[in-house]
Amino acid sequence: MTANEDIEPVDVVFPASIEAVLDSDVDGLLDVQEKPAKVTARERLERAFLEVVEFRRAHGRVPSSSTRAIAERKLGARLDGILANDDKIAALKELDVFGLLETPNAPASIDDLIGSDDFNLLGDESGLLDVSDLPVRRQVHDSGEVARREKAPDFQQFEPLFKQKHAELRDGTSKLLPYPGMTHIVPGAFFVLNGVMLFIAEVGETEYKKTTVRENKRERLRCVFENGTESSMYRQSLGIRLSDEDGQIIVQTEIPEILTDDVVSGYIYVLRSRSEDPQIAGIEDLHKIGFTRDSVERRIKSAEKSPTYLMAPVDVVASYRTYNVKASALENLLHRIFADVRLDVTQANRKGRDYDPSEWFVVPRDVIDQAINLIISGDIVGFVYDANAQKLAHRDQ
């Protein structure tokens, strides 16, 4: 086509009206998107709370506002903010399928109050119960705690332990110190409360109590007193009483302290036989040295039926709780030290079969104590047992 050629016009037909234009828009190019409805403050609150609910459903716990996980920490802080506002709690009540907004009941006792310590203010890390550096605050307790004590049904098993501890205090192998704090309330520990010695026989299973803020834990103790009674107060309750009433702890001289982080590995026990068999009853200083991972009391429950215990009842004359070491290895070492004075006797078990008890030794009780202390200090390698002198002697003698 040249420049002087005529250009034919293009016919364009315009619609007659705007409605016709809209009707002809079969692809929706002229459609106007609907403006989204404005979200209300209540809807935002409900959406925010439902995210917390979904976290609880997925993880089985409420989100923590102190964790290092940023997403969880945001949800935890959000829940804390809701719990601090009564209006928000009321508005979200119908969405609270897990009871996250429920207000806990007021504690009925001091133990319940300690157990509901949502912010762990009375926990070990806070140090609030360690008041050894503060001025003494005298507090008179009524007889409620004493009234809750009961007679210990198996006190005969613990009585030798109290006698042993009194003997150690007299000869200086143990000493009294001011109550040092809750970390020292562990199984096997001895304390003096209002002039009465007590023994931590057991620490019960940890009880967990969930609240909307955190999960608390607490343990009941079995405290046996030298007057033949026992109680089952919580660890925190005993800690408070020992702090308020100038309680004392009994510790062995020059032996490392035991803390709650130390792991109980077993028990070494020393027994005395009550056998009436003439070949056994007349042997002086006859002791069984054994170990158990369970409690000593349960281990010897049916002693009279077992040739291991010479088919007779036994008395516990000493019990040593071992920490962070293999109790069986300590037992084997003690057996090697006293191998020359092992009891040589054969008995018949309940089925009539001969049995040679291997853990009974003719050795004074105080020598066994000395051997255990030398093992703990690491000096046992320089000693041997002199059966004639009935004492541990230096190897070079």
Rank of each mutant, 00 (worst) to 15 (best):
V381T: 14
V345M: 02
A189L: 01
V136A: 15
R353G: 10
L50Y: 05
L310Y: 03
E245R: 15
T292I: 02
G123T: 05
S265N: 11
G81F: 03
I300Y: 02
M182E: 13
I368Q: 02
V21D: 07
A41V: 10
V213P: 05
S24K: 14
D111A: 02
V62R: 13
P357V: 01
I110D: 13
I200C: 04
N324S: 08
R222P: 07
G76N: 01
D340P: 10
P313D: 13
A339N: 14
C223N: 12
K301F: 12
N216P: 05
S377R: 04
D244N: 15
Q236W: 03
V140C: 01
E125R: 13
D124T: 14
L177N: 10
V192D: 03
F158T: 11
R42C: 08
E125W: 11
R350A: 15
G181F: 04
W360D: 02
Q279E: 15
S328P: 11
P278S: 06
S273V: 02
N120R: 11
N324G: 03
S174I: 00
P364V: 05
F190N: 00
L177Q: 12
E54P: 07
P160E: 03
G188A: 04
A84H: 10
A84P: 04
A77H: 13
C223G: 08
V363P: 03
S64C: 08
S66Y: 12
V21R: 08
E205Q: 11
L169P: 00
E215G: 06
I376P: 04
S64G: 08
R274Q: 15
E202Y: 09
F55S: 05
V270G: 05
G99V: 07
G127L: 01
I110A: 12
L221S: 00
G115L: 00
R235M: 01
A16E: 15
V52K: 00
E284N: 14
P307V: 01
P364A: 04
D87G: 03
A147G: 08
R220V: 05
L92M: 03
L242P: 05
E254W: 11
L259I: 12
Q370N: 15
M182R: 13
Y320T: 05
A37W: 07
D369E: 13
A37E: 14
E46W: 09
D112G: 06
A312M: 02
M1I: 10
R68Q: 14
E159P: 06
V363F: 03
L198Q: 04
S231K: 03
L333Q: 15
D31T: 13
P278C: 05
V251C: 05
D244K: 15
Q164W: 13
N105R: 14
L30I: 00
A90G: 06
Q248W: 02
Y320I: 07
F338L: 01
V345P: 02
P135Q: 09
I372H: 07
D11P: 10
P256N: 07
I376Q: 10
T211W: 03
E276F: 09
Y320D: 06
F158I: 09
P357D: 03
L242F: 03
V363H: 06
A48N: 13
A189M: 07
E304S: 15
E43S: 13
